[in-house]
Design a protein around this nucleic acid. Structure first.
Lengths: 150, 150
DNA sequence: TAAAGTAGATTACAAATGTAAACGTAAAGG
DNA sequence: CCTTTACGTTTACATTTGTAATCTACTTTA
């Protein structure tokens, strides 16, 4: 349960981080090459994103002779999780379950993933509720799906 | 499997949509009131977001005498799902499973949600794979978690 | 040693976003 | 009928994001 990450990076910056996360320490050239292939970004474009990430403190730099080696200042899983948690805060409580179902159905999962999911689900059963109220309109839920409403 | 939603709304706009979705048809005053309470937005601020959503075609307007009634031009669940699908495209394939585990563990779920999740999981078992390769660096995965790599 | 190539830093600029005030017009109240 | 109110529209403006060229200081190479 990591608290307060609150860094918020853009889609383009994510793309850079993915390269860094996948390779531990990288030179700018490596990042540039990967993204030139994958996203067709001009080198200058990638450089901009790298620079912004460094400024935000999300990329560490360590000098290696003349160049820099870049590495992530944040843990990949923690970052993904807190980003997703923030995204889910936009979603009405009552829809979270369906959203998760949809995600699972679109995902490619390993046997291990499935095992883990089954395990959490088993735990969640203990604290499951009958109906989840809409929390979009505080105080007075008039949402169609909430019999409890108003 | 809804294709092509590609509307992309901002966090602030989401907040407006939540109010609309929760209530079917609403006046601007209702939206403004809710968000003044919930987010402490000035009426003018909310008006701006409403206007932008109308311009984007995401809010319908229908005249009701002098005022407008606003309603959503898009289906809530479809919208949520396609937004999340897009978000998950930022996430390395190999991390998707863990991300889902995390989401489940932070969610409040109903018995029905859990049932549905169990059902999808059951289906996913048939197409589960041994290991999911990192797809962040195309062609040559050097990611730590991928034994298959490079 | 001069030319060419690299890498990081600086500058550019349009579109989207957050945040809001001001404006115009019609309605409702006094 | 005039004033206040309410609502939609227009304008404002700083920040973030996407997208990139240019500049500067080395370094490698001819």
């Amino acid at each position: 349960m990591v608290k307060e990450m609150e860094s918020k990076i853009s889609d383009a910056e994510w793309e850079v981080m993915r390269v860094v996360w996948a390779q531990d320490k990288v030179t700018s050239k490596e990042i540039i090459d990967v993204l030139q292939q994958k996203k067709e970004w001009k080198p200058a474009t990638t450089k901009t994103f790298i620079g912004r990430l460094v400024k935000k403190g999300i990329l560490y730099t360590e000098e290696e002779g003349r160049k820099f080696l870049y590495s992530s200042a944040i843990n990949e899983s923690d970052f993904i999780n807190s980003t997703l948690d923030e995204t889910f805060e936009n979603i009405c409580n009552k829809d979270v379950g369906n959203a998760i179902v949809n995600l699972i159905s679109n995902a490619t999962l390993s046997f291990k993933d499935i095992e883990k999911i089954e395990k959490v689900i088993e735990m969640k059963k203990k604290e499951a509720v009958e109906e989840i109220p809409c929390n979009c309109v505080p105080g007075q839920c008039r949402c169609n799906n909430c019999s409890s409403g108003h």
